[in-house]
Design a protein around this nucleic acid. Sequence first.
DNA 1: TAAACGTGGTC
DNA 2: TGACCAAGTTT
Length: 373
Amino acid sequence: MRSSIAETSEPLPVSAAVLQRSLLDWYDRHGRDLPWRKPPDVLDPYRVWVSEIALQQTQVKTVLPYYQRWFDRFPTIADLAQADLQAVLKAWEGLGYYSRARNLRRAAQLVMERHGGQFPRTLAEAIALPGIGRTTAGGILSSAFNLPLPILDGNVKRVLARLIALPVAPAKALDRLWAASEAVVSLDRPRDLNQALMDLGATVCTARKPACLVCPWMAYCQAYQTNQQQQIPVSEPKAPIPHKVIGVAVIRNPQGQILIDRRPAEGLLGGLWEFPGGKVEPNESIADCIRREIQEELGIEIAVGEELIVVDHAYTHFKVSLHVHLCEHLQGEPQAIECDEVRWVTLAEIDQFPFPKANTTIIEALKQRFPDA
DNA sequence: TAAACGTGGTC
DNA sequence: TGACCAAGTTT
């Protein structure tokens, strides 16, 4: 019994066989040559898994320099499972979305416990691991084991939204997009088909100025055929993001050491180190803010000195201006009140700790200011 | 369901 | 400079 147009309409504008043949032929000639895509890497589920996690919301070019380095440090799932969280975060430093690194390590431990150190081969078992959703699971299993499972990452959403001329934002039509992805997955070459979909999105069916004239799906693309490729996919309105002004302290002691703290394990930049500080309240000076925050967070008194640098940084859902001042420790033993740990370190030691990007900018400024330290 | 969660590149 | 975008998952 068919109940609605939406449920009964075909998921694809032409047969899957036609789409598969044209796309795979294009992929054989124009697909990208990526390390996790060819043997021996593609035959190692661990390598494919790490690449899929690193590539979440992250472009290939950004991931490339991290990829081999990761396996130098954590050659096997067992090595990752046993590694210190701090070492894992240091290897991930700069990639962002640090819950990915925490989840990767935790999932490695679960693979050891549940699957004897072998990455599981079923969708349900893969999705049960932290940090692996349906897209990543499909990506890993199709790539590593050539299983016919659909994916729906940003590239595929855009490609399929254009192919079917989706009239609403992809987030509002995930069921239809998953159905289209499932319909187009090749039974012969699922690995190549999925990789081809992503390559098409990354290199031809791009967000801005898609190269429709060289697209293997030009003749079938409902967006192109109706000249809507610039308007599709429909974008969602985005909420304005707040801008916070933060006072930050570089606190030095008479030995020339600097005080850093480790952020709580979960949440924003969880487990990473930083220079202490906090949000400037209305009608509060930067210096007053820094003194107050350091008293509240670390329980010590400091003297706030000259400004070292102002760092503007944009996160996904807010922006900050870090007003960083050089400070002197006056009295009190630093306590980890609103963080997980505090340490005095020298500039020579500081590179051993994982820091978020905005703080590495501060470290660079410090090294310039104190080149002999 | 919507917000939280990083960073680098482009226009 | 600011807005937008890029191989999403979690809560």
